[in-house]
């Protein structure tokens, strides 16, 4: 196993671990905004880690360039999508519960 492969394994493993944590957070967190926070922050970083790991596996080829382009687009689209989601929820009247642990108030 070369150093590049070792680095790729580390990056892919870290990405998987982060995505697993995000999934647990998505299921366990109490209300919408906290869940979105768990998913939104992590998935950009995890995607970046995955793509970097794959880039290490590909080496200096055209594939790595394409991976870089994918990463660039993900950096634009993924936070924007999460922002649009949170904004849509806010505009349609979803608010956090005052006390943690309360069920979230229904949007009206």
């Amino acid at each position: 196993m070369t150093w590049l492969q070792l680095l790729a394994t580390l990056l892919l493993g870290a990405g998987s671990l982060l995505l697993l944590l995000a999934g647990i957070g998505l299921l366990r967190f109490p209300h919408f905004y906290a869940r979105l926070h768990a998913a939104a922050v992590v998935d950009t970083l995890a995607a970046a880690l995955f793509l970097a790991g794959l880039g290490c596996l590909f080496g200096a080829t055209l594939g790595t360039v394409k991976l870089g382009l994918i990463l660039l687009f993900l950096l634009f689209t993924s936070p924007t999508a999460c922002h649009a989601l949170a904004r849509a929820a806010w505009v349609s009247g979803l608010r956090e519960p005052a006390q943690p642990g309360e069920p979230p108030p229904s949007p009206s």
Partner: peptide, 15 residues
């Protein structure tokens, strides 16, 4: 739509 969506889509649509 707000500013962020407009700017990002202005960047994305030509691509």
């Amino acid at each position: 739509a707000n500013l962020i969506l407009r700017v990002v889509s202005k960047f994305l649509i030509p691509v």
